[in-house]
């Protein structure tokens, strides 16, 4: 490593993140100027500075509700992942199951959340369970599709090679089909994790003891759009962090994927 490494890293960061930082700052600055110059009422559109100040004053309540949402998201998403993974294996080994199950899964995706969320709260109460169920409901199918597509993307030559070596179907699945599905799995993961947060907040909005969803509902009913937006800001940050975690996870799990362009 040369002495210039840190400054070069910083230059790389600016090159990659610079445009995004510029556009977001411009947006917030325009917003702030508009509210200040035109004297917009904070009950209609609060200025970003007000959102930050009020959000900071409410930090303990926000943190408590964020933790609840984070729990619902991760528990729901984890259970969805486990079930999707098991079903993907079953479907890969028994093709008829795909025809039997996919229509059912597609129907679950057509249910309007507005209708289904209150019902799930009605059935499972105000605790963690209805959130887990709803998060799983919105993320299960995308993950299942990602996995089954990933298995199908296996190089036929690699399967033929393993079969010629005498590998069993299960062995071929573990050695070839599973690793082949990794890029698809992570693509699905990135999309689903954003659904998961939205799903959790939606379930809380329909009724919960704690969570950003119920916090937003209460803030709205108390005519506090500044706190609504503060909660929105927190949930966006949470989603971005989870998204970043999946990107990090993918890099750790697929070290070979970044090498495709680097030949000696």
């Amino acid at each position: 490593m040369s002495i210039t490494a840190p400054s070069r890293l910083f230059a790389r960061f600016i090159r990659h993140a610079g445009p995004a930082i510029a556009s977001v700052s411009t947006l917030i600055l325009t917003w702030e100027t508009y509210v200040q110059l035109w004297g917009i009422s904070p009950t209609a559109l609060p200025a970003p500075t007000r959102i930050i100040v009020q959000g900071y004053e409410q930090r303990e309540a926000l943190a408590c509700h964020t933790i609840a949402t984070f729990q619902a998201t991760t528990f729901g998403f984890a259970s969805s992942l486990i079930v999707a993974f098991l079903f993907s294996i079953l479907i890969d080994f028994f093709r008829q199951l795909r025809r039997a199950l996919f229509p059912v899964f597609i129907i679950t995706q057509t249910l309007p959340l507005v209708a289904i969320a209150p019902l799930i709260v009605l059935w499972f109460g105000f605790g963690l369970t209805p959130k887990i169920v709803l998060v799983a409901l919105v993320t299960f199918f995308p993950m299942l599709v990602a996995l089954t597509q990933g298995y199908e993307a296996t190089d036929r030559n690699i399967s033929a090679l393993l079969a010629s070596m005498g590998a069993s179907r299960w062995r071929i699945f573990v050695m070839a089909r599973l690793p082949s599905a990794l890029p698809y799995f992570f693509a699905g993961l990135r999309i689903s994790i954003t659904y998961a947060v939205v799903g959790a907040i939606f379930a809380e909005y329909a009724g919960a003891a704690r969570g950003l969803g119920i916090y937003i509902l209460n803030a709205k009913n108390n005519f506090r759009p500044d706190l609504v937006l503060a909660a929105v800001f927190v949930s966006a940050t949470l989603t971005l962090l989870l998204f970043g975690a999946t990107v990090f996870l993918q890099r750790a799990a697929m070290p070979w994927a970044r090498l495709t362009e680097a030949r000696p």
């Binding site: 090679l161 697929m254 070979w256």
Partner: peptide, 18 residues
């Protein structure tokens, strides 16, 4: 079919990228 007496080299190289 179950003997697997051949060492087979498929088209391309069929190396596992991972």
């Amino acid at each position: 079919p179950a003997q697997h007496r051949f060492a087979f080299m498929p088209q391309g190289d069929a190396l596992m990228p991972w």
